[in-house]
Amino acid sequence: MNMIKALFRRELRSYFATPVAYVFIVIFLLLMGTFTFYLGGFYERGQADLQPFFSFHPWLYLFLVPAIAMRLWAEERKTGSIELLMTLPITAWQAVLGKYLAAWAFTGIALMLTFPIWITVNYLGDPDNGVILAAYVGSFLMAGGFLAIGACLSAITRNQVIAFVITVVVSFGFLLSGFPMVLDLFSGWAPQAIVDGVASLSFLTHFSSISKGVIDLRDLIYFALLIAAFLYANTIVLQWKQAD
């Protein structure tokens, strides 16, 4: 536990020691605001809720979270610091978790900094704050899902651009797995059970129910399992690279 804490602290600090954190947070907040007010028609709808705000989260995460995740392992490999890290007395799990949790906490900080929109909606009307809280939780979990995919894929390569592109593509697949463009890939040949299985992997479906204020245990378990699976894959990739 102490190891994970030490790794977590080092990682989180390093975000703020470089411009990465500030650039990311500023861009994240700017895009959130732009999407919510212009594309989402926040004022025009005349409803006191944050639906236009949250509905853009999956799409913003699709590009912004891989940008955070791409450096997790690829950069360590590039600078060679991975050799230092992985010869310290820590397990692969501790390294994976420490790094992942720091990145997740960082996206959490960025997400929390969107609080002015919550203040705005409370000032303008009388929204259901329970729904808003649930949507924030869902959004945070979804960010964690994207991040776990990105962390795992970042361990494959020393090139951050490759890590970014592959993560976006895989994340896009997960995002849209409930939609025809992904399902059609399977429906031609796979049994219905598999098609249903793929459909149920969709980030959008699971996120949209949480963001409406319905916290279903199944959605929580979905994100938890997804994160755990990709982090497990991350440790496998590290071990596989060690033997390579």
Binding site: N2, A6, R10, R13, T79, G80, S81, L84, T87
Partner: peptide, 26 residues
Amino acid sequence: YLPEGAPCYPEMTPRSFLEFIADIRG
């Protein structure tokens, strides 16, 4: 262990880097 080329975390200061190693080393 000093790996070849002495890789470090470039954005850290020597103090915070050594403190991190001290924490990991218990």
